[in-house]
Write a protein that binds this DNA or RNA. Structure first.
Lengths: 152, 152
DNA sequence: CTCGTTGCAAAGGATTTGCACAAGT
DNA sequence: ACTTGTGCAAATCCTTTGCAACGAG
């Protein structure tokens, strides 16, 4: 239940150990939850773990979830993006993808990261800025909401 | 002091009136502050107004600042973007610009909106998504911080 | 006068932090 | 055993809301 789908378990143990940190049940659980949920907020991660634990079982405390998300991000195993108001979403180290968010309905979509290749090159050339695609969120209006638009 | 640089004053009065809303001192003040500050958070706007008011004078209450920022945005006079954790920044309707934020030092830079033209076209073609450039924030690492990087 | 608005204070939601106890190595 | 981590509760931060008094049209 707290075990990870193998490909993720190793990097975690390894990276923790190399820094003198410890492999705890909670850390495995949090990483597993991020990997399992598509666009997980800290709250959603906590909820899922509580649900998995069931009535009797114990799930990591909210503060532990936050602390470990931060740690996992430092370890390079998860990433977060701010998609709107107070909602950072985390995703595990899969193939990088770009987040596209609809301002009207909140719908989150993914897009091809290469969309920003030329922009990234120009930012590097013009400002010396390294664009981090994993953290980028593009806002706008999705097709469905565009069609529902009434008075502007 | 609460007066606006003309080009902004008219649209405000006009748009309020056409909706049966009222032109108040606070609304003029909030809009003026957003126009004057480069990347204003609600808190920064409140602080500036309090400062302008001085010890004796009265500045709009925080809740009024929030309410009016929301209203001004509905009226199309200001825009906001989320650049990171809990800090939405507002800017007045100038020429649109793209926000670029450094994850390390928090430095905010502006870039040419045309950087995203090709990306916007492809999003429209592929997903029917209309990209809203004013709300976009690009994250990454600025030149100074890249040079300071040590152990990864 | 008649509502839209404001100020104040209190409620809320989302993180974060301090600390004693529990748990990895 | 020696430290790092965790749970719990309290503290913060940012924002929103209820309501009576205020002010623009």
């Amino acid at each position: 239940m707290a075990d990870l789908p193998a490909p993720e378990a190793e990097p975690l143990a390894e990276r923790l150990r190399s820094r003198g940190l410890r492999l705890t049940t909670q850390r495995k659980q949090v990483l597993a939850a991020v990997a399992a949920l598509p666009h997980a907020t800290p709250e959603a991660i906590g909820a899922r773990l509580r649900e998995e634990a069931g009535p009797g079982g114990a799930a990591p405390d909210t503060s532990t979830v936050y602390r470990n998300l931060e740690l996992l991000e430092r370890l390079g195993l998860v990433w977060h993006t701010h998609l709107g108001k107070g909602a950072p979403v985390y995703h595990a180290f899969e193939h990088p993808h770009l987040h596209v968010v609809c301002q009207s309905c909140g719908e989150i979509d993914s897009a091809d990261p290469h969309l920003l290749d030329t922009a990234a090159e120009r930012l590097a050339a013009d400002l010396g800025f390294r664009l981090d695609i994993g953290h980028v969120a593009l806002s706008g209006t999705c097709r469905a909401c565009r069609e529902n638009e009434d008075a502007p």
